[in-house]
Design a protein around this nucleic acid. Structure first.
Length: 839
DNA sequence: AGCACGCCGACT
DNA sequence: GTCGGCGTGCTC
């Protein structure tokens, strides 16, 4: 019998770790308090994965977010069932980061956890059915019906069945009542099985049997035995070629991968015979999915302008947490990163380099791999789940002190980051749209670095206005490189007037004379050409060739989209549609053509104009599979393609010395962005593509085709006067309350019924008016309705003063408003989606 | 989000 | 009568 005053009992109460708040992967905005059983108390730590019962039957894996001694008042806490790890998978800094993210981006901590953990580390239970060992059909006092019999029959053959299995066996949708009845009749048991999804990769390896290695004579005997058995002999010879057993007997220990040994068509049965005869033996070996590669080279020497920037960055870091590196395309930012990374790694801290998905090519990864070798991990979205878990564990174990990755790599379990670098920081793809957490990886990275007391370097040739603004305000350090590496000259811009060429009959297959000449010239000199088009597919809008009129939606501020099959112009946002006009509504011209042609049609045109040129096309269609992208790049780099036509993805970090001409097929399309960021995006896009043109000795040529070559934006890009462009745009942003002068929060109200959705959105606006934070609310008033997946939705845009306190207050009020509205019976099934800093 | 419970219609 | 439709309420 246990003593009433057992010593450990007393200690437990005073040290006070009886309860743990667990983060569970459920969309409920809080953690859940569980009791820590005594036997688990010594091991309990923040960040451990635990198994808990959630609800009546679900068993979930959660993560310990907090340990305390406050028993919940309103309910009886359930106990933690088990601990899954010896070491925490998640460290306390990460938990802090998750909590921040959930608060800032207005989502639930469970959603953050769901995004953060590779699914290989997430566990959830599956209900399984098994035969009750005490059950005997003969003696059972309960009669079974046909379907119940069927289930039992199946369980005779297979030890356990999932619910899905049972559904299939009976061909019904709901097996629950049947299983329930079987449980009541004591025929079956239902239990929950939690399964680890991550499985280590295991190779079967082959080596010579130790007895054979022991003496030369034994081997000779083997050779005699295989005389006249050519298949066995061939395997044996191949093995000995790869493993010189007698020179280096220890090599035999490691063996050879069985699959590799049999690669050249040797038969498995011959190998089996050899194993049976005691010549070879097999064994299992756990291998890393991520291959080890040793560093092969030193970092290159920095040029003087790179060196100056490098020093300047370090000086800024003495006083500033974040530095913006504004370096023209081709200024060699990567080499500066490498030097910085090396320094941080030498000091014993970790480094994270974030890249937008499309920029994470083997080109840059290969370059970094050469310098950093096996201490560098790569976290790519195309990785399988098992591979992700290996990167995760690699960071945890210290195998990787440096990671190059896409936006989700901010969630890796770093414990001592010294520096985070966000390359191409202006890239919109750093923002996650859906699902929650709708975070911006650049902004989150800065916060992550702050938690680690680390530095953040933002790099771009065309910084986002937010970052540039912060730099001008002195919040970030600012370093600029205006020279290209090796003093290569910046490209020369040309504006080609589409309308003028058309009038003079010089437009051929939508290409201007100037562009044709430049391409022709490049081809004659064995140089390469890149043609950029900002969209894939066919003809999305209609435009008048004479006055450049485009169809605008009567209700929304957007261009109408051309729908070939329906012969209609449609609004992307509100569903408004009209028949395609026969003549231009503005000037009466009949020269209405479909614009914004896809890459496919451009490729067609070019093949007719330059029949002798070798063409390549790079867009989502041609690069959909894992290697399509790389293959095209390799072919282009090898000079097997003369003209590469592509979308966005060709603008990213490709360095090809032979590209001298870049054509922007439809400059106007770039300006047609229905968003306050249109100008910023256009500037960025044109500058980025243009950056592909020209290197070292040859000046690049950039041709922009346009119907409005006089548009001032082109002039600004061409002059390369980023600051002036920024300054002018800022005037409008300030005037119309846009970032960086205000903070935007977008709230989408969504419901299957249009009326209800509208009512709910109005109710939201009404309530918002009461919490007068400085804001302007748009949205439903304009009658913008979009139906997505049979859900009507209204969007409200809230503009907040850029002050931390008002922001926090606003979010609290918003949470309260939404909670209250959800309680209204009519709005019960209305969904409110909050997007902080929408892009 | 799931998943129970619970209250109604249209079938064996 | 039961099967199964989905409204509503809860999960430590």
């Amino acid at each position: 019998m246990e003593s009433l005053f057992a010593e450990h009992d007393f200690l437990d109460k005073s040290s006070g770790n009886n309860f743990a708040d667990i983060i569970l992967p459920v969309p409920i905005p809080r953690m859940f308090t569980y009791k820590i059983p005594k036997n688990l108390q010594p091991q309990i730590q923040i960040g451990l994965r635990v198994i808990v019962q959630f609800g009546k039957k679900k068993v979930l894996t959660g993560i310990i977010g907090k340990v305390h001694n406050k028993p919940p008042q309103a309910y009886e806490a359930k106990p933690i069932l088990d601990i899954l790890d010896h070491q925490p998978s998640v460290n306390p800094l990460q938990i802090r980061f998750w909590v921040w993210m959930a608060e800032y981006y207005f989502c639930h901590i469970g959603e953050v956890m769901f995004a953060a953990l590779p699914s290989g580390l997430r566990l959830s239970s599956e209900s399984k059915v098994q035969l009750n060992p005490n059950f005997d059909a003969e003696t059972s006092k309960y009669p079974l019906d046909v379907r119940e019999e069927k289930i039992l029959e199946a369980l005779e053959k297979k030890d356990e069945l999932s619910y899905e299995d049972c559904e299939q066996i009976l061909g019904v949708k709901t097996i629950h009542p049947i299983l329930k009845s079987l449980v009541a009749k004591e025929a079956i048991l239902i239990f929950e099985r939690v399964q680890e999804k991550y499985t280590p990769k295991v190779e079967t390896r082959v080596r010579l049997h130790p007895d054979i290695v022991a003496s030369k004579a034994a081997l000779e005997a083997v050779f005699e035995a295989v005389q006249g058995k050519p298949k066995q002999e061939s395997i044996l010879l191949k093995f000995l070629r790869d493993v010189p057993v007698f020179q280096r007997p220890q090599l035999n220990e490691k063996g050879v991968d069985k699959a590799t040994l049999l690669e050249e068509g040797d038969s498995e049965s011959s190998l089996k015979t050899l194993i049976k005869n005691g010549v070879f033996e097999t064994f299992k070996h756990v291998v890393n999915r991520i291959e080890e590669e040793a560093a092969e080279r030193e970092a290159s020497e920095l040029s003087s302008s790179q060196q100056a920037a490098f020093e300047e960055i370090k000086t800024h870091f003495e006083t500033k947490q974040t530095v913006l590196l504004h370096g023209v395309t081709g200024s060699g930012k990567t080499e500066i990163y490498i030097k910085l990374i090396q320094e941080v790694l030498e000091s014993g801290s970790q480094v994270l380099l974030l890249l937008p998905e499309i920029a994470l090519t083997t080109q840059i990864v290969g370059r970094l791999k050469q310098v950093f070798g096996s201490q560098m991990g790569v976290y790519h979205s195309k990785y399988s789940d098992n591979e992700r878990v290996e990167v995760w564990n690699g960071v945890l174990s210290g195998r990787f002190s440096f990671v190059v990755g896409v936006r989700s790599s901010i969630f890796l379990p770093f414990d001592s980051l010294g520096m985070v670098i966000v390359d191409e920081e202006h890239e919109p793809s750093f923002k996650q749209f859906d699902p929650a957490p709708r975070f911006h990886a650049r902004d989150a990275a800065i916060m992550l670095a702050y938690f680690h007391q680390a530095r953040t370097l933002l790099g771009s040739a065309t910084p986002s206005f937010e970052s540039y603004f912060n730099a001008t305000q002195g919040k970030y350090g600012y370093v600029e490189i205006t020279h290209r590496f090796g003093d290569a000259s910046l490209p020369e811009y040309h504006l080609a007037n589409i309308s003028a060429d058309r009038k003079k009959n010089l437009l051929k297959l939508d290409s201007t004379r100037l562009l044709r000449e430049k391409i022709q010239n490049a081809l004659e000199n064995q140089q390469q050409v890149i043609i950029f088009q900002n969209r894939r597919g066919y003809s999305p809008y209609i435009q008048c060739e004479d006055c450049s009129w485009t169809g605008q939606c009567v209700q929304c501020d957007v261009s109408l989209t051309y729908h070939q099959f329906a012969e209609e112009l449609r609004c992307h946002y509100c569903g408004y549609k009209e028949k395609i006009p026969q003549a231009c509504p503005a000037c009466g011209s009949s020269q209405l053509t479909t614009q914004g042609m896809g890459t496919e049609r451009i490729e067609e045109s070019l093949s007719l104009l330059f029949p002798e040129a070798r063409l390549g096309r790079m867009d989502l269609d041609t690069t959909r599979n894992k290697y399509g992208y790389q293959r095209l790049l390799d072919e282009f780099a090898a000079g097997q393609i003369d003209i590469l036509v592509g979308t966005q993805m060709i603008t990213k970090g490709l360095d090809f010395g032979k590209v001298t001409v870049v054509g922007i097929w439809d400059g106007d399309r770039i300006l047609n962005f229905p968003d306050f960021r249109a100008g910023e995006r256009a500037y960025q896009q044109i500058t980025q593509v243009a950056g592909r043109a020209g290197r070292r000795d040859i000046q690049g040529q950039v041709v922009i085709q346009s119907r409005n070559p006089d548009n001032d934006l082109f002039g600004k890009v061409i002059r390369g006067d980023y600051f002036e462009f920024f300054r002018q745009e800022m005037i409008d942003r300030k005037k119309y309350y846009y970032p960086p002068f205000v903070k935007l929060v977008k709230i989408t109200t969504r419901h299957a019924d249009a009326k209800t959705a509208q009512k709910a959105a109005h109710a939201l606006h009404h309530q918002m008016a009461n919490i007068a934070v400085k804001k302007i609310v748009l949205g439903p008033e304009k009658g913008i309705i979009v139906r997505i997946k049979n859900q009507y939705q209204f969007e409200s845009l809230i503009k907040l003063d850029k002050q931390g306190t008002t922001q926090a207050v606003f979010k609290q009020s918003l949470a309260k408003i939404i909670e209250e509205l959800q309680a209204v019976p009519e709005f019960r099934s209305v969904r409110w989606i909050v997007d902080v800093d929408p892009s």
